[in-house]
Amino acid sequence: MSEPRSHAVLIDRLGTGLVPVRRLPPPALRALGWLLVVGAIAVVLSMHYGLAGMLQRWAAAPDLKWAGMGAVITTITAAWAAFALGVPGRPAAWAWLPLPGMLLWIGASGFGCLRSWIAPGTEVAGMHQSVDCLVFIVSFSIPLSALMIVLLRRACPLRPVLTAVMIGLASAAASASLLEICHAYDAAATDLLTHAAAVALVVAVNAAMGGRLLSRV
């Protein structure tokens, strides 16, 4: 059988099995769906811990507020980028979208470490408390990453590792944002390093595991 003939046979066979399909919603809309889950968790945490402590910390030390805002912006943009990369034909440049939010997040957190005074209602975290932060970020990142991987497996991420890195970043940033609600520790080098280690861990595990889970397309 000649090759053009075999293409015709395959096309005929694919046509025979054709059924209507539900089109994938736009990436922004799909990202919004995932962000609503994060929002729901934030509401539950706010009801449990209250927002007064967070607002008091933010009012007293704007760097904490800006770091929190940076984490939220990173969450939104990384999620959007991940869902955009799940659609064939979308440029890889989407992966740059979370960069401004990340710079704000890291920059404000680093700036906070330079302060010589301690923000009211907080203390400088010791090693034990810092480990709690790491556990919090990793624990929340696992289900959030898993949810996004499930959602993205319905799409077609042609760059699975890059997409998985975006998933890891979005999940870790979302977890760090949620942590902000109940994070009674001031910015400090140990705390910043623990957060950075947690984010790096989540991103690395996603790149290794998520990349494989997404590459079967």
């Binding site: 395959l10 694919l14 399909v21 064939p88 077609c156």
Partner: peptide, 16 residues
Amino acid sequence: VQETLITVHRVRHTYD
């Protein structure tokens, strides 16, 4: 060509 046609069939719902 064949691999791509099969993939297109599988992911045709992702086309906007």
